[in-house]
Design a protein around this nucleic acid. Structure first.
Lengths: 229, 229
DNA sequence: GCTTTTAGTCATATAACTGTCATAAAGATT
DNA sequence: AATCTTTATGACAGTTATATGACTAAAAGC
């Protein structure tokens, strides 16, 4: 459930430091120390973010970034580049090639993690496993718990996933098909109407103080989760 | 709760990295960036270990190490020195002055943590394992004993480890696989379902006053230890 | 060597969840 | 208002997940 991060860095000490910090944070880390092995990482399962040393042997960071942006399935993977102090022109070129952010070495792990999370929040909001709160309704992916005004709710696995999806995708209508894809997973053969039933179960589960109104029916289109009633 | 570590390092990026890593490991960290402020840290409560950059302004690492070894109450505090590559003569002098270990920069966080723990295990074996208490449930790793409202409980070795892990990782779901990795150890081939049985044994063991409710089943995900029911 | 404790597995019981349907209710259309 | 369409709801049955007790083999203690 958490994000997969590809670390491309040739200096082993720095690479180890990065991996250690990221793993501590619960990320799944793929290491790569040169151009060739890094390219090999651009396959299923694709990394969700790439930490790229701008200067590494066997082709510069720019070359690799271009390679990433060229691939059909990899072109949307965000890249954070790591530059040495004073390589300002690299920064410019990096942003041209499509890097999403950059950091100057040496940097503090706190800052690194913060930036990674910032980028991920933008690209894949569900990956961070952070507690989400919406008007007294809290969902904590880590403890796998849902509370309403700090009172734990009893909620089944599918309803949990459904609510998690909704809470990370507010104010948007999803068709039953889309919900099945996103929540149940692709290639699952389930009746469309089944969604209705789980919507009902979800509403029942969170119906403490009218919170069930957040789960809204959009006739003819599907469902939406929104605090605006 | 855990050991207090004094980090003496003038380069802020490295210092931050060190602090981050150590705090992640549950150590209490005191930062210091120069000789004077470092000396001021040699008071109650004394650090249990000192991480000392060998080259820092306002007096070399050696000077500070001598200062430490001179103090009546500080002279037994172990010192791990951090040297840059190639400063071999420093290493020799460092060991003369009384450093307990040294590491050459750059180093991997894993190695650093391992060495710190090794030193601490030698100097203050109790520091790494302290009694944990959660709502009347006490676990003492040293005496390997669990008490419920000060009444000893009968608990098997595996249940002990399981409970220890849970009590140090509250409010978080762990899958059976994760528990097997963390409690049984990696590369142990044991049936997933075996966890269930030990969970049951643990529940039975701590079921004095409803304390078994702390061990919670999260259907479809695994188990969780939490005081919130 | 014998007894006691413990770990792991299995079979079965129990509980919880899922998907589907039939029917009711609500909304839209004419 | 009548009809048609879409959604809500309760019930049901099949399925899956977990709990539990019993058993065996291994390990530890005596």
């Amino acid at each position: 459930m958490s994000a997969r991060i590809l670390v491309v860095e040739d200096e082993s000490a720095i690479r180890e430091m990065l991996c250690f910090v990221l793993e501590q944070q619960g990320f799944e880390v793929i290491e790569s120390e040169d151009f060739d092995s890094a390219v090999k990482c651009l396959v299923e399962p694709y990394p969700d973010l790439i930490l790229l040393d701008w200067m590494f042997p066997g082709g510069s960071g720019i070359t690799f970034a271009k390679e990433v942006k060229r691939g059909e399935f990899s072109k949307d993977i965000p890249i954070i580049m790591l530059t040495a102090r004073g390589e300002e022109e690299d920064k410019v070129r990096g942003l041209e090639v499509g890097a999403d952010d950059y950091m100057t070495k040496p940097f503090s792990p706190k800052e690194l993690v913060a930036r990674i999370k910032a980028v991920l929040r933008r690209v894949m909001p569900t990956a961070l496993e952070e507690t989400i709160e919406v008007k007294g309704l809290k969902l904590d992916p880590l403890s796998h718990r849902v509370t309403l005004d700090d009172k734990p709710l009893n909620i089944g696995p599918t309803e949990f996933k459904l609510l998690h999806f909704f809470m990370t995708h507010l104010d948007r209508v999803y068709s039953r098909e889309q919900l099945l894809d996103q929540v149940w997973g692709t290639n699952v053969y389930v009746e469309d109407r089944t969604v209705d039933v789980h919507i009902r179960r979800l509403r029942k589960a969170i119906s403490g103080n009218g919170h069930e109104q957040f789960v809204q029916t959009v006739r003819g289109s599907g469902y939406r989760f929104s605090t605006r009633v």
